[in-house]
Amino acid sequence: MGKLYTKKQLAAPKMLPKKETISFLLNYSKALRMIKVGNMTFETIAN
């Protein structure tokens, strides 16, 4: 069991998102509107 903890950890590979993913998230955030009425919040997507 001691051998498990003494092993050197390998560096995790960089996880980079695709350009399509970034574009989708940016477009979604541009279209999302939050409207607060009293103590309620409504989310609408303007497409």
Rank of each mutant, 00 (worst) to 15 (best):
19 K>A: 05
14 K>S: 10
44 T>H: 02
25 L>A: 11
16 L>I: 14
20 E>N: 07
3 K>T: 13
15 M>A: 08
24 F>Q: 02
11 A>D: 12
33 R>I: 03
17 P>V: 09
26 L>S: 09
31 A>V: 06
24 F>P: 00
36 K>T: 13
7 K>F: 02
37 V>R: 12
18 K>T: 14
14 K>I: 11
28 Y>W: 12
13 P>K: 08
1 M>D: 13
34 M>R: 11
3 K>M: 02
39 N>E: 12
45 I>D: 03
47 N>E: 04
26 L>T: 09
13 P>I: 05
29 S>Q: 11
31 A>P: 07
20 E>A: 14
23 S>L: 13
23 S>T: 15
6 T>P: 00
46 A>D: 13
45 I>F: 15
45 I>S: 01
2 G>L: 02
16 L>T: 14
38 G>H: 05
42 F>L: 09
21 T>N: 00
13 P>V: 05
14 K>A: 14
24 F>H: 04
38 G>L: 01
40 M>L: 07
20 E>V: 07
6 T>L: 00
3 K>D: 14
37 V>A: 05
15 M>G: 02
16 L>Y: 01
34 M>Y: 08
4 L>A: 09
29 S>H: 03
19 K>L: 06
32 L>Y: 03
30 K>Y: 06
19 K>S: 06
26 L>P: 00
16 L>D: 10
